[in-house]
Write a protein that binds this DNA or RNA. Sequence first.
DNA 1: CACCGCATGTAACGTGTTACATGATTCA
DNA 2: TGAATCATGTAACACGTTACATGCGGTG
Lengths: 165, 165
Amino acid sequence: MSIRHGLLALLTRGPRYGYQLRAEFETATGGAWPLNIGQVYTTLGRLERDGLAVRGAEDAEGRHVYAVTDAGRAEAARWFASPVGRADRPRDELAVKLALALTGSGVDVRAVVQAQRASTLATMRDLTRRKLGVAEPAQALVLDAQIFQAEAEIRWLDHCERSLR
Amino acid sequence: MSIRHGLLALLTRGPRYGYQLRAEFETATGGAWPLNIGQVYTTLGRLERDGLAVRGAEDAEGRHVYAVTDAGRAEAARWFASPVGRADRPRDELAVKLALALTGSGVDVRAVVQAQRASTLATMRDLTRRKLGVAEPAQALVLDAQIFQAEAEIRWLDHCERSLR
DNA sequence: CACCGCATGTAACGTGTTACATGATTCA
DNA sequence: TGAATCATGTAACACGTTACATGCGGTG
């Protein structure tokens, strides 16, 4: 529910229209997760359906402006206040893959670990390089989040390889 | 696509029926991501639709057994051979939240970080405790993956808090 | 004029979740 | 007998992605 809550959070800063929301979302997150414009409109429709936002009149340039409702403001506050729990996260595809490779499939586990390690290292180099050109603190922190995760993945892969012996 | 590929990987070990697939999936992953039984059947239907598995005759106990096809075997091999890339992963809800909290919303970023940190620490304690009772190496590695991720999250949160000053 | 960027949407599709319905077997 | 477990499925729904269609305005 990152998109839904993200757009809602942006709306709490003031009325916004679709294109504007996508631009602000991508600016804030440094384009780490590009947001399809179609998704913005369907999400806005659902926010309105659920009483968290209302579609107001068109502005001077004829854009369709949405505004947050009281319920939407409360929901956004609730989102910021409640931590992201373990159950909220999707299945970790890599962990699933390794677990299945380990338990009696004919797969060469070491090869899987090696391939993943090389790929994750390349990712980390890329992220580190991209961080040099970033001035916005929010964007830098998003990049840092990905870097920290990639580091943890490398550590885990090495840990897996040690366990194989 | 963890479920789809996970079930496919299990089928490469031999013909299986729905309940059996769920049991083996949860055993391999240590129950970290419980798998709804309904999802197993819909996924099996899609695997058959896509030519990756076929529904064979019922076994002696009247169970509906599925078997992997050549195409399915190839797809499973491709899955194991290709690393999980950055674009494959879903949006990190926590990073999105922090990024939006930082960029000019009226939110107390420090409070968000503190709440998340406490929650993630509790998660880590729970995972560490649960690891004591685990003997299966695959299950232990899945738990380790979550522990490593939680550690990285704590480090990142501390990094965020330092950046706030 | 053609093309591009802005702006709004819709349709089709895939994955995943939950809830519900059904029947057989086993066990207290 | 009644409850739990095994086993198979369907229906409704939510979220997200992609592709497509439309219209406006500016620019080469």
